[in-house]
């Protein structure tokens, strides 16, 4: 038996193309900004108030401003056009690219697989995540581990910046790490590691409690993914503007 003969790619009458288009535009804009800032190699550290943009943290190579290298400079100066963030960006990018929410977002928006529910995709063949390279999406938990370490570094930077007083920059850094922490903890791999992998919750009450808390955050994973991504860029922009003396930091104490 054959399927019903319906020639139209979709019979949806709503604006199904709007969410993937918005997602694509958003991800493209953020990627362009992040690439520009990564390779700019400047205006990432405000010496007066100890603000370090999260995009350059930790700053581990010899071309870093020494005061911005909270963990020393174990790496030599990077050759050519390479800048300090290229050491950490692969881990941060890997965490976002393999994230279960972002996978949905870019599979739909960038690869049209599918562009929207009940809208036919344009590809003749589909093997999903069964083979290379997409089988590497299973490495998400490793990027989660790396992102957790980098989150701790960001928290450390934020705490250090409070040593110079209190300004708007401190509050922005604080909101930034809070959103990054919420996004990282709401990760599906974190939910699995916290307790999801257990078969008997009743035998592990602490892990069950942790799982329920992570599950609450996990319900907001998409919102946290966007909020944290946009706020990282805004935080970086603020630090760049203060570092380049385009604006001055609004100070509350000192």
């Amino acid at each position: 038996m054959a399927r019903a003969q319906i020639a139209a790619r979709t019979l949806r009458t709503d604006r199904w193309w709007l969410p993937p288009l918005t997602t694509f535009a958003g991800l493209l804009l953020i990627s362009i900004y992040a690439a520009f800032r990564t390779f700019q190699g400047d205006f990432y550290w405000v010496d007066q108030y100890h603000y370090l943009t999260p995009m350059y943290s930790p700053c581990l190579s010899e071309e870093c401003v020494p005061a911005a290298s909270h963990f020393g400079q174990p790496l030599p100066a990077l050759p050519g056009f390479l800048t300090p963030p290229v050491v950490i960006i692969p881990f941060l990018l890997g965490f976002r690219i393999t994230c279960y929410y972002y996978r949905k977002a870019y599979y739909r928006a960038a690869w049209a697989s599918p562009p929207a529910c009940a809208v036919a995709e344009p590809h003749a063949k589909y093997t999903g995540e069964t083979r290379f390279p997409l089988i590497a999406q299973n490495l998400h938990r490793y990027f989660f581990y790396a992102a957790s370490i980098l989150l701790c570094v960001n928290i450390y930077d934020t705490v250090l910046a409070f040593g110079t007083g209190l300004g708007l920059g401190n509050l922005i850094l604080l909101v930034n790490v809070s959103l990054l922490a919420a996004y990282t903890l709401s990760c599906h791999s974190c939910r699995h590691i916290a307790g999801g992998r257990l078969k008997h919750f009743s035998k592990h009450p602490v892990r069950y409690w942790m799982w329920t808390q992570v599950s609450k955050l996990n319900n907001r994973h998409m919102q946290l993914a966007w909020a944290s991504l946009i706020f990282v860029c805004l935080t970086d922009l603020y630090v760049a503007l203060v570092a380049s003396e385009t604006i001055s930091d609004l100070r509350f104490i000192n």
Binding site: K104, Y107, S113, P114, E129
Partner: peptide
Amino acid sequence: GYCNITKCCSEVCPEHIHITDNALIPMKER
């Protein structure tokens, strides 16, 4: 492995079961 978690199953479920978040992703993690 064919599932690319685009969540259409969860979107159309009339019982509002979180198929992707609570079944498919936990299985992928296992």
